[in-house]
Amino acid sequence: MTEPEPAEVPDYLRAIARAFPAVSSVVTDPEGRVLLVRSFNREPWGCPGGVIDPGESPEQAAERELAEETGLRLRAGRLLHIAWARGDGGDLLNMPGVQFYFDLGAVPLPHPPLRLQPDEIRDAAWVAPEDLPSYTGALRVSRIRAALAARAGDEVRVLSATRAEMDADAAAFTARRDRH
């Protein structure tokens, strides 16, 4: 049996779609290569990151996720862009989502050794921006490139896509990769 919601919560608040919050940590090296990780639970590569835990700020989540997934301990810098995933909120997989991309700086060469999270991260790579399409779908490529552009002085932007567009992008990347 579920507990009833408190009577003092207005009806319009109960009807508001909830969104899950997430972060991505943008890390580069002096040659401009971007650190990407490949998770066990999703196919395309992406920047280290994950869901913001209750009680932590987006910046704290970016720092924590980077440390958990790669062993790197860097401070979150400025916000580079926000990615919004449109969803109808009909179920957990169709929840809207907001993902904050933060600048976590550059690491020196030679690259420091990475300690990959064994139960979540299967691989990591330093990828030149022009090689991003070999690692991930067009939506993630556009997000990473927007983050790099903002780091170089471009404006901070909101990039939106539906959950269906994100799923189709991941499927197209997987199909393209499997053909080669």
Rank of each mutant, 00 (worst) to 15 (best):
Q99D: 12
E165D: 14
P133H: 07
E56N: 09
R38W: 08
G71S: 09
W45E: 03
W45C: 06
V9T: 09
T2Y: 15
L36S: 05
L109N: 12
L139R: 14
P30G: 02
P118S: 02
P133Y: 05
S25Q: 06
P110M: 04
R145S: 13
D88Q: 09
P110V: 03
R38C: 09
A61I: 05
L13F: 15
R151P: 05
N41H: 14
A171Y: 04
A7H: 13
E59D: 15
A67P: 11
Y101M: 07
A147P: 08
A61W: 01
R64I: 07
L79C: 10
T2D: 14
Q117I: 02
R122V: 12
F100H: 10
P96M: 03
P4H: 08
D178K: 13
T136W: 00
L80F: 00
V98R: 07
L35I: 01
V26S: 01
V51S: 10
A150D: 00
W45G: 09
G137W: 02
R151A: 03
G90L: 03
P118T: 01
F102L: 15
Y101N: 07
R115W: 05
I144N: 02
A147I: 00
V127M: 04
H111Q: 05
D119I: 07
E43S: 12
L72G: 08
F102P: 09
P48I: 01
S57D: 06
P129M: 00
L148N: 01
Y12S: 14
S160H: 08
R38E: 13
P48S: 14
I52C: 09
V158T: 11
R151Q: 08
L80P: 00
P58W: 00
G87E: 03
V9A: 00
A161Q: 05
